[in-house]
Design a protein around this nucleic acid. Structure first.
Length: 575
RNA sequence: CGGGACGUAGCGUAGCUUGGUAGCGCGUCUGAAUGGGGUUCAGAAGGUCGUGAGUUCAAAUCUCACCGUCCCGACCA
């Protein structure tokens, strides 16, 4: 490609809309332009990079035995109603009506659509396993799109769905995808880490996320340098000890705490009740019913873990009115002691860390009063114990005891074992060896392709611009002739090398713009082409051209060696 | 959705406090010089000042509403 024939609208200044490095570079290097918040157009070189990432994904999915298909973007609402996801996903779905007033959803993911295919076409265990994948646009009505392509309303995803005849075989399919993902991110030049993840709203029972560590990520990853344990903070556990039990406590005693409504206030004089001897009482409304959650005063409830325990994502903190109705008191004096509650038949979830705790202090369910000497197992009727707290940095690793660390990260991929939820709901069944009808055991696997693109930039840039890994660069080689007069020695040589490299299948761009050298160099570095071949009159007079790796040193070489050297670089490149 | 900031030419911005009909840099176009790291000079084009209403003799400037953008939070596989 000749630079003058394509469109690479580089910008000297950063548009005000961009905050983080990768977003700024996407715009400055002319890869994308915003149409609306969270909705982006891809320009020629942005699309070239996107296609290269897609191709890597495609090759690795094919290698893992997955079958590429293409599912509709437009889903009839009824398949979502059959799976039971129409309501919980409603707020994130783009919804539309056709002229017959029938409701449709723009696909935010495609478990339903693919399960309909499996249900219709797979009848026998002999056809299993099958893994279908597609690469396409997804739509999610994100409340707050952010950071360019990182959180968008419309984005490109690779989604795959495996169907197996047993849980054991589903595990094999899952493992294949896990390994394919590791290869994909490695080939994209990304340092991704796989972490244990919460399966969240998808349901299912096992999942891992592929994370790109960076401060601009929206997730927190808990990891241990000692043993390699790594998990999303939504899932992470630590080896932190349970609350120490003290001598068998005295009877519960009510005491006045006028205007004390926070854990912190109660921890101060004159009360001096440390947060770790307090029970924090939270009230949620889950599926329209109140639920009480107890964690220790110095712990934070982890809503993802809580969601997993209550088995629904339709929950929210109770309003003050609801709290008063349930407990007879305002937030600030809430307590779970069964005898003090207005209603006793409420489900109570308690964090494991509180198990066996006594001599605890908690609200009295009466404004201005707290209770001391509370023994949780004696005084509170707990419906279910569970790990509900959020791990914090520095806690001992549950496996090896070393202090845990927390790192921000971008989620670029997610693999799930789904089970039979969708196959049961949508009738994806097969006949096994004995002729019995059974639901397929499913797995689902996503990669945010556009998000991956931006993550690569976020992880690979310097003060001058993007530093593309060879594997995904929009063009591998940029030939930069310093004069472009037709027929000049410089331009003639540039075109010769351009033709030879192109003939060898290399993606080359020839910067044939009549610009000053500085402009060309700055642009080639901003856009981030991995290999640059500079050809100028002065060095050519000495029988040299200049080969430069992006970010590396300039190497003078003989013009006749240029093609060979470049081919060698491409062949031996790590990525 | 709550809190905050912002909206002036393709991009970055000044002007707004104190109302008088818009300026600068980059980019673009023309010409000239220059020609190895965003060169220089001369000239030119390009603006519903986000939209609407209000106040006023007069609104980019003051008031209100709406829309949009960004940040924090909530939310988010």
């Amino acid at each position: 490609m000749r630079w003058t024939q394509t469109l690479i609208p580089t910008l000297k200044e950063t548009p005000a809309e961009a905050e983080i490095t990768s977003h700024k570079l996407l715009l400055r290097a002319g890869l994308v332009r915003k149409l609306s918040a969270g909705v982006y157009s891809f320009l020629p070189i942005g699309l070239r990079t996107l296609k290269k990432i897609e191709q890597i994904v495609r090759e690795e999915m094919d290698r893992a035995g997955a079958l590429e298909i293409l599912l509709p973007e437009l889903h009839p609402a009824e398949i979502w109603e059959r799976s039971g996801r129409a309501e919980p996903w409603r707020h994130i779905l783009f919804k539309l009506k056709d002229s017959g007033n029938r409701e449709w959803f723009m696909s935010p993911t495609a478990e339903e659509a693919v399960t309909v295919i499996a249900g219709g076409e797979i009848n026998s265990y002999r056809q299993l396993p099958k893994n279908f994948y597609q690469i396409g646009v997804k739509f999610r009505d994100e409340i707050r799109p952010r950071f360019g392509l990182l959180r968008a309303k419309e984005f490109i995803m690779k989604d795959a769905y495996s169907f197996d005849s047993s849980d054991e075989l589903a595990q094999v399919s899952y493992q294949k995808m896990y390994e394919a993902y590791a290869r994909i991110f490695q080939r994209c030049g990304l340092k991704a880490i796989a972490v244990e993840a919460s399966s969240g709203a998808m349901g299912g029972n096992f999942s891992a996320e592929f994370m790109i560590p960076t401060e601009v990520g929206e997730d927190d990853v808990v990891f241990c340098e000692g043993c390699g344990y790594a998990a999303n903070v939504e899932k992470a556990v630590s080896g932190i000890p349970k609350t120490a039990a003290r001598e068998a406590g005295a009877a519960v005693e009510k005491f006045a705490t006028p205007s004390v409504v926070t854990i912190e206030a109660l921890a101060k004089a004159p009360y001096n009740v440390p947060a770790n001897r307090q029970i924090k009482t939270l009230i949620y409304i889950a599926d329209s019913k109140p639920v009480i959650v107890l964690v220790r005063g110095d712990d934070q409830l982890n809503e993802a873990k809580f969601a997993g325990k209550i088995g629904t994502t339709v929950f929210r903190p109770a309003t003050t009115t609801e709290i008063v109705e349930l407990t007879g008191t305002n937030p600030g004096s809430l307590g779970a002691v069964t005898s003090t509650r207005k209603k006793s038949d409420v489900t109570v979830f308690a964090d494991e860390r509180l198990r066996g705790a006594n001599e605890m202090t908690t609200g009295a369910n009466e404004d201005g009063f707290h209770l001391r000497n509370v023994s949780i197992e004696r005084d509170i009727q707990v419906s279910q114990w569970a790990d509900l707290r959020t791990v914090t940095a520095g806690e001992p690793c549950a496996k090896c005891g070393k202090p845990l660390k927390i790192q921000r990260a971008i989620e670029v991929g997610h693999v799930y074992k789904l089970g039979t939820k969708f196959s049961v709901a949508l009738g994806a069944e097969f006949l096994d060896e004995s002729g019995a009808r059974q639901p397929c055991v499913m797995g689902c696997y996503g990669i945010g392709v556009t998000r991956t693109l931006q993550a690569i930039i976020e992880q690979s840039n310097d003060k001058d611009g993007i530093v593309w890994p060879l594997s995904v660069a929009p063009y591998t080689v940029c030939i930069t002739p310093l004069s472009v007069a037709p027929g000049s020695a410089v331009m003639t040589l540039a075109e010769k090398i351009y033709n030879e490299l192109t003939a060898r299948g290399v993606d080359v761009i020839l910067d044939d713009r009549d610009e000053r050298p500085g402009v060309k160099f700055k642009d080639s570095e901003l856009v981030g082409f991995p290999i640059r071949l500079g050809i100028g009159e002065k060095s050519l007079a000495k029988g040299e051209v200049e080969l430069k790796l992006r970010g590396g040193a300039l190497t003078p070489i003989k013009p006749e060696d240029a093609v060979g050297k470049i081919m060698e670089m491409i062949k031996t490149a790590n990525v």
